[in-house]
């Protein structure tokens, strides 16, 4: 914890220690037959080295689109604008070739769906070795194999040596997810983008993975952006939490601020929807559904579902305001 505070303070005073990731006004638009869908609509944030940002928000709010834009994997018709700097280097102003190299070595991503991230026709070993050699060109095959084995042991896959020879379909869901995590950390990236990396993990393995993330982060001063539906994971792992709705961050602050003193009614709804230990009553879903991104209302995108909405909320798009030290909220009624 103290380490995080140190690096954050250092990052703000000496520009030499650039943050792991800095994103300014990121916009992602999917253009297609149905017109343009603005999945990410002006998102800005900074992840200091050694720090964790958790992004929460309903399905379809643009979390994966945001991560995919940062790492640069989107369908060809996608328009991405804004600043994306990794370790102080702005990816958007680089030549496409440099950008590819930077993204390959400095940013890595754990994709949401562990099965699709692995190629079903190759063994785990082949895929791991390939990932390792991409980042460590000096390693020969045998060394890379040894490293692959170590990585599987690090993520606690039982009978790791035997599992190297397995095909993805022969592994359980949680094992596949851990293989994907192992591949992503193989290159010791500056920033790791992890999209729902723990959904397939049981609580004991999940706890270990979270501590492992912390440890790797400390070792290599990595920044981590984790997208999760599990507020328990956010509470456990994150320094900061951002809440995404209809392509925007509607609330952002420290984990404690956002999870224990939420300011935005949407955050409040997300927290209330959780099934608590021993709960008997039906969980409260937020009424309605997130708006279709191609037909956003003129005012606050959450107003139609908000129990506190007043008429102004329907007309005026709320600006982001500070509601506490480093705690911001985009609610007209927040103060």
């Amino acid at each position: 914890m103290s380490l995080t505070i140190e690096t954050r303070a250092a990052g703000t005073t000496t520009p030499a220690i650039a943050p792991a990731l800095r994103v300014r006004d990121l916009v992602t638009e999917f253009r297609g037959r149905y017109g343009a869908v603005r999945a990410v609509d002006g998102v800005s944030f900074t992840v200091p080295r050694g720090s964790v940002l958790a992004v929460i928000g309903e399905s379809g709010s643009g979390k994966s689109a945001m991560l995919r834009s940062i790492i640069g994997i989107n369908p060809p018709t996608t328009l991405v604008t804004g600043e994306i700097s990794v370790g102080g280097r702005d990816l958007q102003t680089m030549s496409p070739r440099d950008r590819r190299t930077a993204r390959g070595s400095d940013v890595s991503m754990v994709f949401q769906d562990p099965l699709t991230a692995l190629d079903p026709v190759y063994t785990v070993e082949k895929q791991l070795v390939e990932a390792i050699r991409k980042h460590h060109e000096g390693l020969d095959k045998a060394q890379a194999r040894q490293r692959a084995l170590e990585l599987l042991e690090l993520v606690r896959i039982p009978s790791a040596a035997a599992r190297l020879k397995a095909y993805p379909s022969e592994l359980s869901g949680g094992m596949r997810q851990r293989v994907v995590i192992a591949m992503a950390i193989a290159g010791r990236p500056t920033v790791l983008l992890a999209d729902e990396p723990t959904t397939a993990l049981d609580v004991t393995v999940q706890a270990r993975m979270m501590r492992l993330f912390r440890q790797i982060q400390r070792d290599i001063d990595m920044g981590l952006v984790i997208v999760t539906h599990d507020l328990g994971v956010a509470a456990e792992l994150a320094d900061e939490v951002a809440v995404m709705y209809a392509g925007r961050f509607v609330e952002h602050g420290t984990a404690t601020q956002v999870l224990t003193r939420p300011s935005h009614p949407y955050t409040e709804g997300l927290i209330e929807a959780n099934v608590r230990a021993g709960q008997d009553r039906r969980p409260n879903a937020i009424p309605g559904a997130p708006p279709s991104l191609d037909q956003l209302p003129p005012g606050c995108a959450f107003a139609p579902r908000c129990r506190y909405a007043v008429s102004a909320c329907w007309d005026v798009r709320p600006i982001t305001q500070l509601v506490g030290d480093g705690h911001s909220s985009s609610c007209l009624l927040a103060s």
Partner: peptide
């Protein structure tokens, strides 16, 4: 092992023994 929703109860900075080589029980 169920995590709570309270960041104050986080155990994230407990060390993981990455060198831990004890056999993980396997169905093999």
């Amino acid at each position: 092992s169920v995590p709570t929703l309270d960041p104050a109860e986080s155990t994230r900075d407990e060390p993981v023994d990455t060198a831990d080589s004890t056999e993980i029980p396997s169905p093999i």
